[in-house]
């Protein structure tokens, strides 16, 4: 699929996908992920500044995927979750290092850098973030 195979489209997102770089609004203190160019709450009063996400959060909901899209077929069954980060933003990612039947809503998780998927024909390997359970929650 063209929108996934362009190298530029992969490189452009490296700061977010590899390093969790994003933006926040200094006017209201809200954190965003992915980065926003202006704050939807403050609009013209937005004061956008860079910040790096904590990578720690908890599972808000999850599913075990049995019918995958192209590039993910070899991973089934895999867990997809919506994670709420400590500082507020929510994001969607795979859970790893956990058995599907052990996943719970509210479970504390942390982000790690992982291989996400592979394109079949031209061999690009996509990397990004997944989350795994925090065994002893850090404060």
């Amino acid at each position: 699929m063209p929108h996934r195979k362009s190298l530029a489209s992969i490189w452009r997102r490296i700061p977010q996908r590899y390093r969790g770089e994003s933006t926040m609004c200094l006017n209201c203190g809200r954190h965003f992920f992915p980065p926003r160019h202006f704050c939807p709450y403050c609009r013209r009063k937005s004061k956008i500044a860079p910040y790096t996400i904590s990578g720690r959060g908890k599972v808000m909901s999850y599913t075990v995927v049995h019918v995958a899209q192209e590039g993910f077929e070899r991973q089934v069954p895999y867990v997809i979750a919506i994670v709420e980060l400590e500082e507020g933003p929510k994001l969607t990612a795979q859970l790893c290092a956990v058995e599907p039947e052990d996943v719970r809503i509210g479970m504390p998780v942390e982000m790690s850098f992982r291989r996400i998927s592979e394109d079949k024909d031209d061999g690009i390997i996509h990397y990004g973030y997944k989350f795994s359970p925090i065994l002893s929650p850090k404060k």
Binding site: R4, M60, S61, I80, I105, I116, H126, G128, Y129
Partner: peptide
């Protein structure tokens, strides 16, 4: 969202599945 959902392995049914799971919870 292609970049922030689908890239990470989301399928369309998986989005409604997460709504269902939370509704059950």
């Amino acid at each position: 969202d292609q970049q922030w959902e689908v890239f990470n392995g989301v399928t369309f049914p998986s989005l409604y599945a997460m709504m269902a799971r939370r509704h059950m919870h």
